[in-house]
Design a protein around this nucleic acid. Structure first.
Length: 466
RNA sequence: GGAGCCAUCGCCAAGUUGGUAAGGCCGUAGAUUGCAAAUCUGCUAUUCACCAGUUCGAGUCUGGUUGGCUCCUCCA
């Protein structure tokens, strides 16, 4: 199995720090607002990684944090009058619900910053003791980047001229312009504050992840975890800073591999809060089934930017539909054994840094071959059972194709409409039996107007929601 | 201003160590169908933004040009 490491910018063989085990930590959301498609994509990408590693025989431990202490959350507290806990637990629940709708498996470890304060304080204290971190007069604690000779290795940034830092607020007490806050002292009484040996305040964003990884992962051979993941925008400064803190505090490297997913774009621009072009997951899920969204968002390679469009989503759904039509042909029944060649080629494709395009083309191929064979011999029970097994394998590895196929095509159709459709189809069947084609075609037009497509098959007249 | 990524058929999108362009959608011809739909079969880029170079050979390597995006500020 190979993965692309965004630090050396190369595809590398995956060699875990402990044989047959893989530990992954992904930067999760700051829970002050609803998740958008970008969060979904990141979550989906690393869900795919986890599934692929498992399918390749690794025991995967996945960690994904919730940043539940943050300036934006505090602002929301001030704006709404609600407690911080109320706000964060609300958005955490929402996040988990929405990710579940996309078929994202829960992480094994889901730490929160608020539950990791001791670890955070301890790590900062260690850095202060080594004089790698320093407390300034306000009580803020900064990381001294000049003490870490490897600072910059993650993002390959070297220069620290004034221009590069001009957008960062300067504090005259900082030893170096690049130094960043580990701890922010509280200013007023209303601030959300936690007491520590150095000052009352709250943790900086970067230290949270370092401390949580240190707390939950044991590591081995000079690394805390195998793979650290997150969005491409986290490479600098977030991951650079995380790596520096952990390296200096623990004496070993944070992660053996670093992986970053590309952005979701709207009209060629990154989706972000500041641009105001966010497409929230909750809204997308009102319009589209979670599985269809998953299929679409995972349909191109995780490292590429993803230009989201609803038209493309509809076109992609057609590709998923073909899998489910085949599943209809072979259902109901019991799965037997997955086709070995198919299994191997899918695993090879995904094992090559999650080459989803190849994986999907392999699936298209087996769908066509199976349909062809079924056209020749519609009663091939062995093939039907193998096909069910193949689809189960697809579902386990890629997370789609697991639904009952008839209900898949009926999403969004209520019982009343369903009865109406079935009555119309029955009437049409009668008309056809009497060769009243004018009547049967009229009924078909009525169904089309209702957004229902019908198809006459050996199994009778089947219908699908368009 | 500094750093980096990307540019392949009408659209989406693959292309390990350079060796002669996957797949999907759309379109089109046919099989099948009462007609459709679904399904199957055939056709659909001598060409990979542009210009040079290295090479027996480049979409793949080098240099440059143009265009797009991202990071340097919270951000998946």
């Amino acid at each position: 199995m190979h993965i692309y490491d965004s630090v050396p910018k190369k595809k590398l063989p995956f060699e875990p720090i402990s044989p047959n085990k893989a530990s992954i930590y992904v930067c999760g959301p700051t829970v002050y607002d609803d998740a958008h498609l970008g969060h979904a994509r990141s979550s989906l990408a690393f869900d795919l990684l986890s599934r692929t590693l498992k399918a390749h025989g690794y025991a995967v431990t996945m960690g994904k944090n919730f940043t539940d202490i943050d300036d934006k959350i505090i602002k929301k507290v001030e704006a709404t009058g609600k407690s911080m806990e109320e706000i964060t637990s609300f958005y955490i629940d929402r996040y988990l619900e929405e990710m579940a709708a996309l078929g994202v498996a829960r992480a094994d470890i889901e730490p929160k910053a608020t539950e990791s304060l001791q670890a955070i304080e301890a790590m900062i204290q260690r850095l202060i003791d080594k004089d790698i971190a320093y407390v300034i007069s306000t009580g803020d604690v900064y990381f001294d980047t000049s003490k870490d000779s490897k600072y910059g290795n993650i993002s390959h940034r070297v220069a620290d001229d004034e221009d590069a830092q001009s957008r960062v607020a300067h504090t005259s007490e900082k030893r170096n312009p690049k130094d960043f806050a580990l701890w922010k002292a509280c200013k007023g009484d209303e601030d959300i504050c936690f007491d520590t040996a150095f000052s009352k305040g709250r943790p900086g964003w970067h230290i949270e992840c370092s401390a949580m990884i240190e707390k939950h992962f044991t590591g081995n051979e000079g690394y805390s975890i195998d793979i650290h993941g997150g969005g491409a925008d986290l490479l600098f400064p977030h991951h650079e800073n995380e790596a520096a803190q952990s390296r200096c505090a623990t004496g070993h490297e944070l992660s053996k591999y670093w992986m970053h997913n590309g952005f979701v774009q709207i009209d060629g621009e990154k989706m972000s809060k500041s641009l105001g072009n966010s497409f929230f997951l909750k809204d997308a899920l009102k319009l589209y089934d979670g599985e269809v969204l998953r299929f679409y968002l995972n349909s191109i390679h995780y490292r590429n930017d993803f230009n989201f469009s609803e038209e493309e989503l509809q076109l992609n759904k057609k590709r998923l539909d073909k899998l489910y039509r085949l599943k209809k042909r072979v259902s109901p029944g019991k799965a037997s054994i997955v086709n070995k060649n198919f299994q191997k080629s899918l695993l090879d494709a995904m094992g090559d840094d999650l080459n989803i395009s190849i994986a999907l083309s392999i699936i298209d191929e087996i769908i066509a071959v199976t349909n062809d064979a079924l056209d020749e011999n519609p009663k091939d029970k062995g093939l039907k059972k193998e096909t069910l097994a193949n689809i189960e394998f697809i579902d386990t590895l890629l997370g789609f194709g697991g639904k009952e196929p008839f209900s898949y095509f009926q999403i969004g159709v209520d019982d009343a409409l369903k009865e109406k459709i079935e009555a119309l189809i029955e009437e049409r069947t009668q008309a056809k039996a009497h060769k009243d084609f004018a009547r049967s075609d009229a009924i078909r037009d009525t169904l089309t107007a209702l957004g229902i497509n019908i198809m006459d098959s050996a199994q009778g007249t089947l219908w699908e929601k368009a």
